[in-house]
Design a protein around this nucleic acid. Sequence first.
DNA 1: AATGAATGAGGTTTCATTCAT
DNA 2: CATGAATGAAACCTCATTCAT
Lengths: 213, 213, 213, 213
Amino acid sequence: MAEQGDGKEGGRRRASADARRKKILEAALSVFLAEGYVATRMDHVASRAGVAKGTIYVHFADKEALFRSLIHEEIGPVIASGATLAASFEGSTRDLLGALASVLQRELLGTQRADILRLVISEAPRFPWLAKFYWHEVVERGMALIRAVAARGVARGELASDTLQRFPQIIAAPLLVSVIWQSLFEPFEPLDTEAFLNSYIDMLMRGLACETA
Amino acid sequence: MAEQGDGKEGGRRRASADARRKKILEAALSVFLAEGYVATRMDHVASRAGVAKGTIYVHFADKEALFRSLIHEEIGPVIASGATLAASFEGSTRDLLGALASVLQRELLGTQRADILRLVISEAPRFPWLAKFYWHEVVERGMALIRAVAARGVARGELASDTLQRFPQIIAAPLLVSVIWQSLFEPFEPLDTEAFLNSYIDMLMRGLACETA
Amino acid sequence: MAEQGDGKEGGRRRASADARRKKILEAALSVFLAEGYVATRMDHVASRAGVAKGTIYVHFADKEALFRSLIHEEIGPVIASGATLAASFEGSTRDLLGALASVLQRELLGTQRADILRLVISEAPRFPWLAKFYWHEVVERGMALIRAVAARGVARGELASDTLQRFPQIIAAPLLVSVIWQSLFEPFEPLDTEAFLNSYIDMLMRGLACETA
Amino acid sequence: MAEQGDGKEGGRRRASADARRKKILEAALSVFLAEGYVATRMDHVASRAGVAKGTIYVHFADKEALFRSLIHEEIGPVIASGATLAASFEGSTRDLLGALASVLQRELLGTQRADILRLVISEAPRFPWLAKFYWHEVVERGMALIRAVAARGVARGELASDTLQRFPQIIAAPLLVSVIWQSLFEPFEPLDTEAFLNSYIDMLMRGLACETA
DNA sequence: AATGAATGAGGTTTCATTCAT
DNA sequence: CATGAATGAAACCTCATTCAT
């Protein structure tokens, strides 16, 4: 009934609690991704995490708090890791974009991250903080990265104009299409995303190289 | 059997019923777009349509049937109209794509249709028929249209390769980005979609024209 | 809008109205028998009668009024017809009971009347007037009939005691069992009701004849 | 997994849950008996059981599952207990039947079990499993019991024929009549069921004893 | 008189959240 | 902390009844 020993006990208990919290977040991630926010049932998260329903409320105030923590703690890190990818890349812009594409191909398409993008698209209208968070954590950083690559390309004379600096979305476009396509239309007409991305970059490089053609 | 003369009478009643059905569909469209499928409450649709809760069930079997009818009857038509746009266009491929972009700019971006796209992305995983429908009504047709334009461009010597025929998604990419961007990130960094699309087409034309560059 | 010719028209209209009322009652009978009172939907009655739902309310105040009218107008007559069966029968009591059994076998078991009995058993607790009506129209008369037969048998020396007069239910018992059995347990073990009734009457005659055995 | 010591605690909670489940079943029994399946409102069951509406759904999947459990868990046992009554009775067949009648008089007529019979008659057409269950649990066993008694009577020379073995329904008949009578017609003409059953058995014994009379 | 679209009270069921153990 | 039974607001859907045509 009263408190028990606090020395190692407390530490062990804390560790166990943290582990539990982590399990819940992982379970929540997969369920939210699969079902969307509204359709996700706390029961389902709990059973997938292997804990009782009430346990979730020990760690998170309510469903939205769980969702928030999920986005911040689970998704944030995977983003940050990607942001440092090409910080110090040496080589032609074409190779850099190719390397970037191959990394994204491996790290985004076909992984849970692609589903996170879909989740954000779905839920952002209802959770303004979600769009804001995704903006700051992913989009803003990604855009800065692309702009840096573009500036580097211009400086090296590989790019003829500032188009890519003005519209870094050009790089995001084929990725977004690939993600959506795989998620919705793969069964009707498969898309070879690797070939697509490569063709896209080729086209892009030619289109951006000879600005005055 | 046993029907009595109901010339104008029946017609008027039928007309009123159809009008009500239309009002429900319109209300449903806006609520589904704003809230998503699961979060949409039939109550809310009813009150927005100015009818009683039960009235919806006079016209639609259940929530999913309402959603289906909505997609098929409200969204189908707007698609068909767009498909005939450039069927008989004369001029350079560049002008053709430009005209297409401007039409889409006017008819897609900034209209409810953009939100419909977001709705489809959100709900398709839960409603396989939705992806199928959207595929057949929009994507397949759009792709055929782009491929026709691409073939025409190759025939006229304006395009150097079959890249666009192999990946018509190239055209869809900036549209998708624009739609998502406006919906999620406009408040953080506005996107001049018109300039974006034009720059994109320019880049694309150059990139596709000099395949061997 | 206003009234039309009332001469033959009125008569014809009335006739048509009565026919419609009859159709509704017939439809209601079959649906109430099949579904029970609560589970019966006015829609179902209407469609089975080939009229609109509202039409029922032209002829009957509400669902219970329909049920009442049904019981009184459809079921009453079929009962009355049976009551006069054996009023003036000549022959031995055994033959009389045998004839009665055969009539009931033909006119009760396997007909809608058996289902009516089940309906009464089911609904009587909720509609006291139903038990009362069935009592007066069927049970009281049937009991009087049996008592008359019993008295005749005693007078002719064929029955040794007044047991059957005190408990006319003895006659009803195998009928009730047959009806329930056929309705519920026929699939598990069929009952040859004719043989059963005959054996029953044989047993009964022997049992009642030699009261002092 | 990850369970902690919950000796008495868990046991107490479980016990309380079981008690609640039992209360719900008891409440459901009385409401179903009084109202019938369709007319029974879950609200009513809940308030009668002294629990919240949702609590029912903690223990039973839906209304039909509640009904099923009710039949299987509440009614099954009372049947089994009755089946062993006369397994090892010594004495004349007449006394055996008399004892049986007196037991049934006490344990069936005038108790809730009589109403259960009415419920089965009412709902079996809509729930085929109900007829099946009642058949296996009650009717089949009862018939076997009666046939055993009949065979014993024949072996002891107390019964002259196999009529009772061929038609054990003969025994059920007066019980069924008594149950229905008490439920529907008692107010109009009371039935002394005890006297009725005794007269019936007397008649039966005489009728079956002197088969060749 | 007949119609059938419209109504809304009321029914079943769900599920986020609470709380005693 | 962890549990999971209990809760009750709220969602979907039904259907007897009304009423304008």
